Amino acid sequence: MAVRPLRVVFAGTPDFAVPCLAACRASGAEVVAVYTQPDRPAGRGRKLAASPVKEAALAAGIPVEQPESFKAESDRERLAAYAPDLMVVVAYGLILPRKVLAIPTLGCWNVHASLLPRWRGAAPIQRAILAGDSESGVDLMQMEAGLDTGPVLIERRTPIAADETGGSLHDRLSALGADALAEGLRRTLAGETLAARAQSEDGVMYAHKLDKAEAKLDFGEAAIALERKVRAFDPWPVAEAEVGGERLRIWAARAVEGVAGTEPGRIVAASREGIDVACAEGALRLLAVQRAGGRRIGIADYLNARPELKQAAS
Score class of each variant (00 low, 15 high):
Met1Ser: 12
Ala2Lys: 15
Arg4Thr: 15
Gly12Ile: 10
Thr13Pro: 04
Thr13Cys: 02
Asp15Val: 00
Asp15Leu: 00
Val18Ser: 00
Leu21Ser: 02
Cys24Trp: 09
Arg25Asn: 02
Gly28Asn: 13
Gly28Lys: 06
Ala29Leu: 03
Val32Trp: 01
Val32Asp: 07
Tyr35Val: 06
Tyr35Trp: 15
Pro38Glu: 12
Arg40Phe: 08
Pro41Phe: 12
Pro41Asn: 11
Arg46Trp: 11
Leu48His: 04
Ser51Arg: 01
Ser51Ile: 00
Val53Glu: 01
Val53Pro: 03
Lys54Tyr: 06
Val64Thr: 06
Val64Ser: 03
Val64Gly: 01
Glu65Ile: 05
Glu65Val: 14
Pro67Ala: 07
Ser69Arg: 07
Lys71Arg: 15
Glu73Ser: 13
Arg76Leu: 10
Leu79Val: 13
Asp85Trp: 06
Val90Met: 03
Gly93Pro: 03
Leu96Cys: 02
Arg98Trp: 14
Ala102Met: 13
Ala102Ser: 15
Ile103Pro: 00
Thr105Ile: 12
Gly107Phe: 08
Val111Thr: 12
Val111Glu: 11
His112Lys: 08
Ala113Phe: 03
Ala113Glu: 03
Ala113Met: 02
Ser114Phe: 07
Arg118Asn: 03
Ile125Arg: 10
Ile125Ser: 06
Ala128Leu: 11
Ala128Trp: 03
Gly132Ser: 03
Val138Glu: 12
Asp139Gly: 08
Ala145Trp: 11
Gly146Pro: 07
Thr149Phe: 04
Val152Leu: 12
Ile154Met: 10
Ile154Asn: 10
Glu155Val: 15
Arg156Ser: 14
Arg157Cys: 11
Arg157Ser: 10
Ala161Gly: 13
Glu164His: 14
Thr165Pro: 10
Ser168Ala: 08
Arg172Pro: 03
Arg172Leu: 09
Arg172Ala: 07
Leu173Gly: 00
Gly177Asp: 05
Leu181Glu: 05
Ala182Thr: 04
Ala182Gln: 12
Leu189Gly: 05
Gly191Met: 04
Ala195Glu: 11
Arg197His: 14
Arg197Val: 11
Ala198Gln: 14
Ser200Gln: 13
Val204Cys: 03
Met205Thr: 14
Ala207Tyr: 10
Lys209Glu: 13
Leu210Ser: 14
Asp211Asn: 11
Ala213His: 13
Ala215Glu: 04
Phe219Met: 04
Ala223Phe: 09
Ala225Trp: 13
Ala225Asp: 15
Glu227Gln: 15
Arg228Tyr: 08
Arg228Phe: 06
Arg228Ser: 06
Phe233Ala: 04
Phe233Pro: 08
Pro237Arg: 10
Pro237Trp: 06
Pro237His: 12
Val243Met: 09
Gly244Lys: 07
Gly245Asn: 04
Arg247Tyr: 09
Ile250Glu: 00
Trp251Tyr: 14
Trp251Gln: 08
Arg254Ser: 14
Val256Trp: 08
Val256Pro: 02
Thr262Arg: 15
Glu263Trp: 07
Pro264Met: 06
Gly265Met: 04
Ala270Asn: 09
Ser271Phe: 02
Arg272Phe: 01
Ile275Ala: 01
Asp276Trp: 12
Ala280Tyr: 00
Gly294Ile: 02
Gly294Arg: 13
Gly298His: 09
Asp301Met: 02
Leu303Gly: 00
Leu303Asn: 05
Leu303Lys: 09
Pro307Gly: 05
Glu308Met: 11
Leu309Glu: 05
Lys310Asp: 00
Ala312Leu: 14
Ala313Gly: 02
